[in-house]
Design a protein around this nucleic acid. Structure first.
Lengths: 195, 195
DNA sequence: CGAAAATTTGACATGACTCAACTGGAGTGG
DNA sequence: CCACTCCAGTTGAGTCATGTCAAATTTTCG
């Protein structure tokens, strides 16, 4: 599928929010991305494969999740318009992914291959900076979530989630939010009812 | 306090385990570190201050911990001989630390300032590589811990901890392990007894 | 409209917490 | 070197948050 101004817009915004970059450099950057359309439930990265791309959600919604031996799924991260989603561990270390990345709805994703990205780092310095910031943010978000899980009750976690991710709440089914918050769908439901 | 061969040894080993580096380069690197001796309970980084150093434990044991509004402490990480310990978030972003770093016993720590480190990155390329690996490992360890907390019971977490960190288990009091595992000291005690 | 999936509801079970009392070592000072 | 204190660790009773399972209800969507 061909990239359009519409699909590139959220990425441009995402970059310009974080670093300043000339129009010519930006153009070079955008050229390196390819657009991929995903059907609902399509899997973009399988556990066991190496993640070779950075992935930006231009439209739709995705999730990354981990499956235990007993078959239970735990959602690690959601990605909606304007978010990056990946198994960052696998991308950074080039080791097999520990989790899946999957479309929850029909979606459009912009991809860039590791090799292309490394070339960009040389050609366009602001981009190296941009991704360094992104990796830092991923680390910080993970730490924040770990601390929240340690200190907050299910109800508090849910309320925090609602405030923080209003737009995600509207884009994914409730049982997935339960999985993200690490509670059962039944319990989340009861938490919601006795406000 | 002056650096000695003895105090530098664990650091040298830690570096050489991860990257190959010439003796001359290694010498330059070691020169950039300073040694600090810590009394029991001495605090190395306060919440609210920016973390300006990377810290390597050459001897003793330390912890980093987070304090909630209600005063409860949560241990984020232990550091014993051969480990790095920091509020990495603060070091990377140069924003105020969200947690404390404190000596649990009398300890010796090797420090390097961010500015020195940046200079090293230019002078000694393997060192840039070394720290990139360290940052990646920190991310991976954090993710692993997050997943464990999602999927394992207190008992399973404890047993995993024992296997993985035999040497830490011997260096820190049990109630701190409870805090790290996110259970009460009483509960950890009962978990231990009914093997 | 009808079937499948998502959500809600309720009864019951359990892992983990709280609080209070007790035990046992490791200093410390007389 | 004893007596005292203090802190870590243990034990037990009672409670609460959250899970499990099964059934009823609502929503989604072909």
């Amino acid at each position: 599928m061909e990239k359009t101004d519409e699909t590139l817009k959220p990425l441009i915004q995402n970059i310009r929010e974080n670093v300043s970059i000339s129009d010519t450099d930006l153009f070079i950057v955008l050229e390196a991305f390819t657009l991929k359309a995903l059907a609902k439930n399509e899997i973009l990265l399988f556990k066991g494969n190496v993640s070779n791309h950075m992935r930006f959600v231009s439209e739709g919604s995705l999730r990354s999740y981990y499956i235990e031996e007993d078959g239970e799924e735990h959602i690690i991260q959601f990605g909606i318009r304007g978010w990056w989603i990946n198994d960052l561990y696998s991308f950074l270390t080039q080791k097999p992914a520990t989790c899946f990345v999957q479309a929850i709805k029909p979606s459009k994703v912009l991809l860039i291959h590791r090799d292309q990205l490394n070339q960009l780092f040389d050609k366009v310095p602001p981009i190296e900076r941009f991704f360094r910031i992104k990796f830092q943010n991923a680390y910080v978000a993970l730490q924040e979530r770990t601390l929240e899980r340690m200190s907050l009750s299910a109800k508090e976690r849910y309320e925090k989630f609602r405030k923080k991710y209003r737009d995600i709440e509207q884009s994914v089914p409730q049982y997935m939010i339960a999985s993200y918050l690490n509670v059962t769908p039944e319990f989340l439901s009861s938490v919601r009812s006795d406000k």
